[in-house]
Structure formats: C-alpha cells, structure tokens
Simulated scan of single mutants.
Amino acid sequence: MKKLVVSDSSLCMNCLSCEIACSEAFYKTYGNPCIKIDVKKDNSPNVKACNQCGLCAKKCPEGAIKQNAKGIYMIDKKACTGCLKCVEACPKGIIVKAEDKPNPSKCIACGICVKVCPMGILEIQEKLD
C-alpha cells in the first residue's frame, strides 16, 4: 500500500513548492493543497502529509471514501454529498474543499509534491500494515 512520507521535516525550507504543485494539480490554481507546511511553536517547519490512516473513510456517512487496491483512500465524487465530515475528521487538517467545488479533495499519493521538493524530503513509500 502506498503513502506519502516526510523523511525529515527539519530540512524543509518552507518554500511551499509542494503546496503549490498539489493545489495546481487539483484546482489549477494555488490555495487548496492536500499537503500543508506550517511552523511549530519552536519555529521549525511542520510538514503535514496524509498517511492514509482511513479516519476520513470511517467518518463518511455516505461511504464515499474507499481504499483502492494500492491502499489509497479515494473520494468517490459521485457518492460524496459534500457534508464535510471527512474534513472535520482529518487529524492533520489536510482534506480540503475549494469554495467553488462541490466535493473535498485529499492526498492520493500521486507524487507531484515529491517531484518538486527541492530538499528531497518527500517520497512515496509502500505502507506496511
């Protein structure tokens, strides 16, 4: 099963390349990335990436979030009613919804952020259960 892994967030330059690439891939504009960079209390970078925990799927009342064969939790846009229970449930706050879209989006471990990270701290790995 695949997941996005942050190897060493202390090396993050907070350049936001990953956020920009993710947001542009989903929405063709910057503003709603499924990976987030913020700063901890000690001013060190905090890279928030989906670990495919499945909590969003458990909280979805419509069953619109299902795990695919690669272990990635995917939102079925046709089954999703836009209730945003998944957004509320995400412990990292990285399931996002653009105002002009009917459904939220989440990380699908596509690797776009990995390709643009200048520090090489992001990677797609096989998730061991």
Rank of each mutant, 00 (worst) to 15 (best):
M1Y: 11
K3M: 14
K3A: 15
L4Q: 13
L4W: 11
V6H: 12
D8M: 09
D8K: 13
S9N: 14
S9L: 12
S10K: 13
L11I: 05
L11G: 09
C12E: 09
M13W: 12
N14D: 13
S17C: 14
C18E: 07
E19M: 13
I20L: 12
A25D: 15
K28N: 14
T29I: 12
P33Q: 10
P33R: 08
K36A: 12
I37L: 14
D38A: 12
D38H: 11
D42Q: 11
N43R: 14
N43V: 11
S44G: 10
P45A: 12
P45I: 09
P45E: 05
P45V: 09
A49I: 10
C50D: 04
N51C: 09
Q52I: 06
C56M: 02
A57P: 00
A57T: 00
K59R: 08
K59Q: 08
E62I: 03
E62M: 09
A64Y: 02
A64W: 04
A64E: 04
A64V: 06
I65G: 04
I65Q: 00
I65T: 03
Q67K: 13
A69G: 09
K70N: 14
G71W: 02
I72S: 07
Y73M: 05
K78Q: 10
C80I: 05
C80S: 06
C80E: 03
T81Q: 05
C83G: 01
C83R: 00
L84A: 03
C86A: 02
V87A: 10
V87I: 14
C90P: 00
K92E: 10
G93N: 08
I94T: 08
I95R: 04
I95K: 00
V96S: 03
D100N: 01
D100G: 04
K101G: 01
S105G: 06
S105Q: 13
I108L: 04
C110K: 05
G111M: 05
G111E: 01
I112D: 07
I112F: 07
V114D: 03
P118Q: 05
M119S: 07
L122H: 07
L122K: 11
L122S: 01
D129H: 11
